[in-house]
Design a protein around this nucleic acid. Structure first.
Lengths: 220, 220
DNA sequence: CACTTTTTTGCGTGACCCGCAAGTTTTTCG
DNA sequence: CGAAAAACTTGCGGGTCACGCAAAAAAGTG
């Protein structure tokens, strides 16, 4: 018996995770190359070598399977946030933790982006993408609460929710406008942290968008 | 001929709107009293006195029909926001416009809240509720852009998105904790407007937001 | 009153979700 | 080790659902 790995997880658990991962991956791959409506659950199941019925033991819809990659990101986000140094300001911790998760995105491969864009039309419509983000949101809120000592649960949820908003907005901007994801995301998170002064200070006939003006304003 | 109403809308249009409204209303009513899984599209259609097939001419799913009330709120929100006085700070305008929309909610009728809560389990799961909120978000972003002169579209989307976040969080808190909606919502919007200092600066209200640190990084 | 445009409706098809009851694999335990 | 127990897979079947299509009905137009 080679001492290669001490699998703390029962064999069963490993197989389950592997099956789930394979199904999600197959679902995403097929969807990206054919479009969602041209992929039946049977195709996905066959691809993995499993019964169509089994697919529904893991996911209750193909949309859910495709979006599960988004959900799985919560693991990394949780760990990243909790790993930030103790004394660091909360917004900075959150920002770094979030940015870290999205640093592995490859450069904007044209074809890939195009497929994602087309895909999003469907996914947004079916709501599963948003649903997945909501799942991440809950974990993020919980993690933030743990980070600050769990004082105000409501505010933690608000922060998590608005952070996810920033992520979604940056993401959409990425695949529609083609602009790089991370700088946008960082900017949006900074705006969130300061109450969006760039906008709110702009109610008056703003001649030029010099960002230094509205920073110290007594908003609202 | 009684001079009661000058219907600028063609008769066809009125019937369409009425049919849509009736279908949505029936869908919501039946769902609240039976639970979503015990309502077939046929039931909704029959309730309104229309063919099941016709239902799908208006909504592509019963979930969509149930959630259409959320979507329809965008109309009022748009008008309310645009009706705010010119010089008013943006955050104040948005806050008032949003609060106005949710001022018509009755008091927390126990039975009603219970049904809503149970309903939300399903709706969140199917994502249509979030989908509806996303639709509102787009209109809100557009309206905000119009309000500030359409300078930074990205930031407008961020603001709209995070405002909707606050609404959702307050709403969930309302039907899970039973706390009143409006005060919570107002507080959350205020927190948003100031960067959530209660959480982030539990120590100090963030005296210096020097965003100069990591802004120039060449990520991605 | 014809004629056009829009909406409704019935029908048929393909897919999907899930409960149920075997069959199969992994785990536990004597 | 070997058998019972627990967990997972699979085939089957039923109830729904979304939607294309084309005919019928209704609303608008001159």
């Amino acid at each position: 018996m080679p001492p290669d790995e001490p699998p703390k997880l029962t064999l069963r658990e490993r197989k389950k995770r592997e099956a789930r991962r394979a199904l999600a991956q197959a679902a995403l791959r097929l969807t990206l190359e054919r479009g969602l409506e041209n992929v039946r659950v049977e195709d996905i199941a066959t691809e993995v070598g499993v019964s169509p019925r089994t697919f529904n033991n893991y996911f209750s819809s193909k949309e859910q399977a495709v979006c599960s990659v988004v959900v799985d990101r919560h693991e990394g986000m949780r760990e990243a946030l909790l790993a930030r140094p103790e004394g660091e300001p909360l917004w900075e911790s959150v920002k770094q933790a979030v940015l870290e998760q999205y640093s592995r995105e490859g450069e904007p491969d044209r074809a890939y982006v195009a497929r994602i864009r087309e895909l999003m039309g469907r996914l947004m419509l079916r709501g599963e993408f948003l649903n997945a983000h909501a799942a991440v949101e809950r974990v993020l809120a919980e993690t933030i609460a743990k980070r600050v000592g769990g004082v105000d649960h409501l505010l933690c949820r608000l922060m998590a929710s608005s952070v996810e908003s920033a992520v979604r907005v940056a993401f959409v901007n990425w695949f529609t406008e083609g602009e790089p994801l991370l700088p946008t995301l960082e900017r949006l998170l900074d705006e969130l942290a300061t109450g969006m002064p760039t906008l709110t200070g702009g109610t008056a006939p703003k001649p030029e968008p010099n960002a230094t003006t509205a920073l110290g304003e007594p908003l609202c």
